[in-house]
Write a protein that binds this DNA or RNA. Structure first.
Length: 672
DNA sequence: TAGCCTCGAGTTCA
DNA sequence: CTCGAGGCTA
């Protein structure tokens, strides 16, 4: 075979293989037997090997460009990839619809396109003259990471758009969602487990993780797929509506979700939402709601954007996932304050990608109200998609249930008679109850207090159980030898714990105060007290009147604090602790550019952690609070923000993304 | 005295 | 993150 013959054969083979790829991956309708396909593919590969001059990047054999990167390049998107306004309340959807109709004017024909909201990793694909030249993660919406080599390995992503030169646009930037279907996801996790690697919590993490592999050969082993749903920028494509956009994408060989629909009324949208939710478990991939988009592209232009979201699109989310499981047992547990909390141990179930095995039942009243009993089948959800909650008991005909659950009358830890305080049940043995001591130790060692690494729940329990610690100050007397004698302690971990404790003996006053666990004294109050009194002795000897001169301290808190220091056991403990620790007075805050501002953080910050961001802002004279109010200056929203973002919007508080937050700091001469 | 604002405490999993 | 309650303010 000469070079010319080879060239035409190679071209014919590529067209053939591409066609079969499209049918198999995009249309899900194979057009050839696997064996015959393999033969074609093999022949193409062999010819390309014999005639290397014929090799091109868009050949179906070149999906995996086998070299690992050092790191990803950051690239700017052709247009910002915005996030959508979203809510799960039906009223919010009604408001969206009404607002749109109002803005578009009386009698305007409003048409929507409805799509499932896929829960995967958002990417931009860029095609020039039909060739895939670039792919990027969403990143902060403006710039993302260059993951071209990885995206090329996804079989549903065409390396070359379908159609003749005339039909293919000169430039096309498409937005799509990379997802992993649930079945291959589980297979992948099993494989990872078998290899001794950590499995992924959910398909979204698995998809995002696969995209961020530096070695495309690893990505190519991960079962990724794409669905395309938007055009960011295009040249040479005549489209006037979202529906036409989707049609055009399909024509060009890009996969579009099969459940997309058109709608003209808000009733249609609710109906679609209900239908998709009903089918949610059968789709084979994860979704968390539906997306509603105004169909008319020209009308969108007129509507424009809010600070973060386009006004012409909206995500109507599903309520949190609920699953049914069985209550294995209900066990009372005593916390550091002595409050006894009933905990339901559950037959493990997966909800939204995480396995839930326990849920707090909060208090006596709660158990009674829901009438949860051991052995019951219960519906469990993750409130705010995080904290597991027992929603209700599922009753069946002819069921036989155990006796209703009752709070024990004696403390499960120390046997002292329990007392009732409102809906709560409390162990009054504050100084002799081992469970409470364990709680105190953990709190004392916690990150915001003395930050003793290696002294968590399990270790504290062990130390108390073996009698090494009978009271809080005893932790400073532990030596490495004693620890090594314990189960689970090797020499190294024993030494590092002892070192961590020794290091903690040099502590900031406010952290020490927090660690003492005085009722009503948390992070903020501890700081105010430290700043006002300057030394622990001054605080200890302060009267209730003195305390109330501190802004934020009223009669109730003053009473709690004086009662704490007035209790002989606490006084003795404090004396012993003070012999062991050296307290540093509060640092003078250099107030500067941020004085008078109030920040609230939500979501995950990428660059500097939330904790560092908080400290940085506070060190420069600003306040950080946990809830959004009218008094809030800025809400800083990282990725995956929570309800505080919605709160900020409804109160009209300015929202900063991480980039603009850092920019604000830089403006004020502050560097991270 | 009501309502807003803020804080403390408890909460699960990887 | 949510709930409940204390403190502050109008």
């Amino acid at each position: 075979m000469n070079a010319k013959q080879a060239k035409s054969r190679v071209e014919a083979l590529r067209a053939e293989v591409r066609r079969h790829d499209h049918h198999y991956y995009v249309e899900d309708r194979p057009s050839i037997a696997d064996e015959a396909y393999d033969t074609l593919y093999k022949e193409l590969g062999e010819l390309e090997e014999r005639f290397p001059a014929l090799l091109t990047a868009d050949s179906p054999t070149q999906r995996v460009a086998g070299r690992a990167l050092e790191k990803f390049r950051s690239i700017e998107h052709a247009a910002p990839m915005l996030s959508l306004d979203s809510d799960r309340e039906p009223e919010a959807l009604l408001r969206f619809d009404e607002r749109l109709r109002r803005l578009l004017g009386e009698g305007a024909n409003v048409a929507y396109v409805l799509e499932p909201k896929l829960d995967g990793a958002s990417v931009e694909l860029v095609y020039e003259d039909g060739l895939l030249i670039r792919a990027a993660t969403r990143g902060d919406g403006v710039r993302g990471e260059d993951v071209t080599a990885n995206v090329r390995t996804i079989p549903t992503v065409p390396l070359r758009l379908r159609g003749s030169k005339k039909e293919v646009p000169g430039f096309l930037s498409v937005r799509g969602e990379v997802v992993m279907r649930t079945v291959p996801f589980e297979a992948l996790n099993e494989r990872l487990l078998a290899e001794g690697s950590a499995p992924f919590a959910n398909p979204r993490n698995a998809a995002a993780g696969a995209l961020r592999q530096l070695d495309p050969r690893i990505t190519s082993q991960r079962p990724l797929e794409i669905y395309c749903y938007d055009i960011l920028v295009e040249r040479g494509l005549a489209v006037a509506t979202q529906w036409e956009v989707l049609e055009a994408l399909k024509r060009l060989g890009l996969r579009v979700n099969e459940r997309v629909r058109r709608a003209t009324t808000v009733e249609d949208i609710f109906e679609y939402h209900a239908a998709i939710e009903r089918d949610r478990d059968d789709l084979g991939y994860e979704i968390d709601g539906i997306v509603v988009k105004l169909d008319d592209l020209a009308a969108r232009e007129g509507l424009g954007l809010t600070s973060r979201h386009p006004r012409w699109a909206y995500a109507h989310k599903f309520p949190p996932r609920k699953e049914i499981t069985k209550v294995l047992s209900i066990v009372p547990s005593v916390g550091r304050t002595g409050v006894v909390t009933p905990i339901a141990f559950l037959l493990p179930v997966e909800i939204g990608g995480v396995t839930i095995s326990r849920a707090s039942l909060h208090n006596r009243e709660e158990v009674k109200r829901k009438d949860v009993r051991e052995g019951d089948r219960v519906r469990v959800q993750r409130a705010g998609d995080v904290i597991p909650q027992v929603v209700e008991v599922i009753h069946e005909d002819g069921e036989t249930r155990g006796p209703s659950w009752a709070m024990p009358s004696a403390c499960p830890s120390c046997g002292t008679g329990l007392i009732e305080r409102g809906p709560f049940t409390v162990c009054p043995n504050a100084f002799g109850c081992r469970a409470q001591l364990v709680g105190h130790i953990v709190h004392f060692a916690s990150r915001n207090a003395l930050d003793i690494e290696g002294l968590g729940d399990e270790t504290a329990k062990q130390l108390v159980d073996v009698g090494l610690v009978a009271s809080l100050p005893d932790i400073f007397d532990i030596d490495a030898e004693q620890l090594v004698a314990l189960e689970g302690f090797a020499e190294k971990s024993a030494e590092s714990l002892v070192a961590a404790i020794a290091q903690a003996a040099n502590a900031e006053l406010e952290r020490f105060l927090l660690g003492l666990g005085i009722p009503e004294v948390g992070e903020a109050v501890a700081r105010d007290l430290a700043a006002h009194f300057g030394a622990i002795e001054a605080l200890r000897d302060a009267s209730a009147e003195d305390l109330q001169t501190v802004p934020g301290i009223g009669p109730k808190m003053a009473e709690q604090i004086t009662a704490f220091f007035g209790t002989p056991e606490n006084a003795a403990t404090l004396e012993r602790l003070l012999k062991r620790v050296r307290l540093r007075p509060p640092e003078k805050r250099r107030s500067s550019g941020l004085a008078g501002l109030k920040f609230v953080f939500t979501g995950t910050l990428e660059g500097l952690g939330r904790r560092e961001a908080k400290e940085l802002v506070e060190a420069n004279g600003a306040k950080v609070s946990s809830a959004v109010s009218k008094a809030t200056s800025y809400v800083v929203a990282g990725s995956d923000p929570g309800s505080k973002l919605d709160e900020a919007r409804s109160l009209g508080v300015e929202v900063l993304d991480e980039e603009r937050f850092v920019a604000l700091l830089r403006e004020k001469g502050i560097h991270a």
